[in-house]
Design a protein around this nucleic acid. Structure first.
Lengths: 343, 343
DNA sequence: CTGAAAGCGCTTACAG
DNA sequence: CTGAAAGCGCTTACAG
């Protein structure tokens, strides 16, 4: 039951460990056909599998990367991970998945452990709170890329949505359908997470473009558990909004739950549009108009950037921010029934 | 920029590597306060982080496990992974996530590579096709547990749903609401994946219990792309079903898409119930009655079983199958409007 | 209480 | 064309 090693193979084949190692690494340049075959036979007979850990120790590469997301249960994260894993699989790499739960302590622990395990690089949805640590990674030229969120002052490859454009697409669509009283539903902003901040900014800027005055009671920012209560208030306003923009999928779900409970009819009573294309958007009634993120492309890009960092140290100097364009998927939830004023 | 090693720490502290190692492993029994402090200071000053790869080589444990799912995009898999990762995080383990896409070749490649990387164990949703390989794992006493699917002839810890009960709960609920013409929508059965086979068996057995004759044109088994076509046929039958049981979430989504496109009203025109609690079940109209799997508990159990295998070799003999009970969540999609005959 | 030495299983110049 | 030797960075008996 003892694990067989390169030494066993060498003995069996009657050659040295060096030769076996050359074989394993496909360095056949100076190897006679005969020894090559002998080694091959020995490997097969013994069902030898090299110990990658030993190789990693010597070669200082583990062919493994770490991916730290806030929560793998979030749809966007799952898709990004799938894209990264696909890319890694092609390149014969593996991915360790970690859930930091937006907790800086957990994040730091993961980053430290991942590095101790010598992973070749990390892709993270940063909590943005471990600035000193991120800075260390940079000064040590450690390969890493950020996803979804920008961290002020940290210059590393970052891939994220053009959030401004996403909010703008949503507002434009609403305005084009004749809505001008547009509310925004957002998660809490006390920790300034890029997509939230930028989408709200985008919303405000777009309103301005359309000469719509910002009504501050129309922008709700609350924890998911308090969302229903906030929506209730919003809709009870003396001058309630005619349309609601949900900042992300989780907010959208809260909104739809509220709407269901109160028997409010979307589109008739209030128009709805959401950033993030929820899985059930097309089968909901009315089908939900959404602004989709190209999650797979974004994940793939992140992986490519990381691998670029592996291969050329030069890339250190010019790490960049890559913005991906969202795509509007027009369905039914913000059409006016009466084919409303195209203003 | 050179990585600092245990040798550097030893030099700095003026002790041997052995002593530093003892310190790292918290073996303080015979260490003087003074040297202990010296080592501690050196470690902090140098910001030393041990190389886990080197340790792993010696200790023959990587504190890393592999999880092979069919597809991380599937909701159930995601939840299971989350539960496993949480458990591992508590135990200071990491998890490598792999998507086998129900492809035995990919699965084999992952298992081989994961083992080459010396992961301490594997949790897999098996394709069930690599029987020889699974058997090898057993004879080598390699720790692994199967999830969601049973593999005939392979005696290892397996955690899965009580699928029979799941189908039965669904049929019972339908019958209790006065439905007797009950169709079953399933994915293809050419590869005999446990949940599919068992849920269909459960469906058939339950019908029998209720003295309902099986109508073979009521059981549809088709690829997702052909599902709409099949549903069309099903509902065009001269004697169409009054209720439909969706075998899993993906089938349910196809069904809902069809229903939406054809403007069929669930509950009024046809009752619907599904195994797997889709995320939007409660906010859909009518809210969907579903049979939920305890995904988190199942994932946690799988992790526990794997860790048990690490800790006691004895467990080899008595690996078992753990069935989890589904839970029915009664909502609105299979209630009769007219408060139908409680038969 | 601490250190020298061997060893985990590979790879890699280098010598021949 | 092939092998002996050193080394990757730890841990672990064992000696003192």
């Amino acid at each position: 039951m003892k694990k067989i090693t390169i030494t066993d193979v060498a003995a069996r084949a009657g050659v040295s460990k060096s030769t076996v190692s050359q074989f394993l690494n496909k360095r056949f340049d100076y190897m006679s056909k005969e020894t090559k075959e002998r080694v091959e036979v020995a490997i097969n007979e013994l069902e030898y599998q090299p110990n990658i850990i030993a190789r990693s120790l010597k070669q200082r590469t583990t062919r493994t990367i770490g991916v730290i997301v806030a929560n793998i249960l979030h749809d966007f994260s799952t898709r990004v991970i799938r894209a990264i894993e696909d890319y890694c699989h092609e390149e014969d790499y593996h991915v360790i998945v970690c859930n930091a739960d937006d907790d800086p302590v957990k994040e730091k622990r993961y980053i430290d452990m991942l590095r101790a395990k010598q992973v070749d690089g990390i892709i993270a949805f940063p909590t943005s709170k471990n600035t000193a640590l991120y800075q260390d990674l940079i000064t040590e030229h450690y390969p890493f890329v950020f996803m979804d969120r920008l961290v002020p002052g940290i210059e590393t490859d970052t891939v994220l949505l053009n959030n401004h454009e996403a909010a703008q697409l949503a507002v434009d669509q609403l305005v084009a359908n004749g809505y001008r009283k547009i509310a925004m539903l957002a998660p809490p902003l006390y920790d300034p997470i890029t997509p939230r901040v930028e989408r709200i900014e985008g919303y405000k800027a777009s309103l301005e473009t359309h000469d719509i005055c910002l009504n501050s009671s129309y922008v709700i920012s609350a924890r998911l558990e308090e969302m229903e209560e906030q929506i209730e208030k919003l809709l009870s306003l003396s001058d309630p909004p005619e349309a609601i923009l949900a900042l992300n999928d989780r907010v959208m779900i809260q909104l739809l739950q509220y709407v269901k409970d109160k028997q409010i009819r979307i589109s008739d009573d209030v128009a709805v549009i959401g950033i993030d294309d929820v899985t059930f958007a097309s089968l909901y009634t009315p089908a939900l108009t959404t602004i989709a993120q190209p999650a797979f492309e974004m994940g793939k890009k992140a992986a490519q950037l990381l691998f670029n960092q592996f291969h050329n140290e030069a890339s250190q100097g010019n790490r960049r921010v890559y913005r991906f364009s969202p795509q509007i998927i027009i369905r039914e939830s913000c059409k006016r029934k009466e084919n409303g004023a195209l203003q």
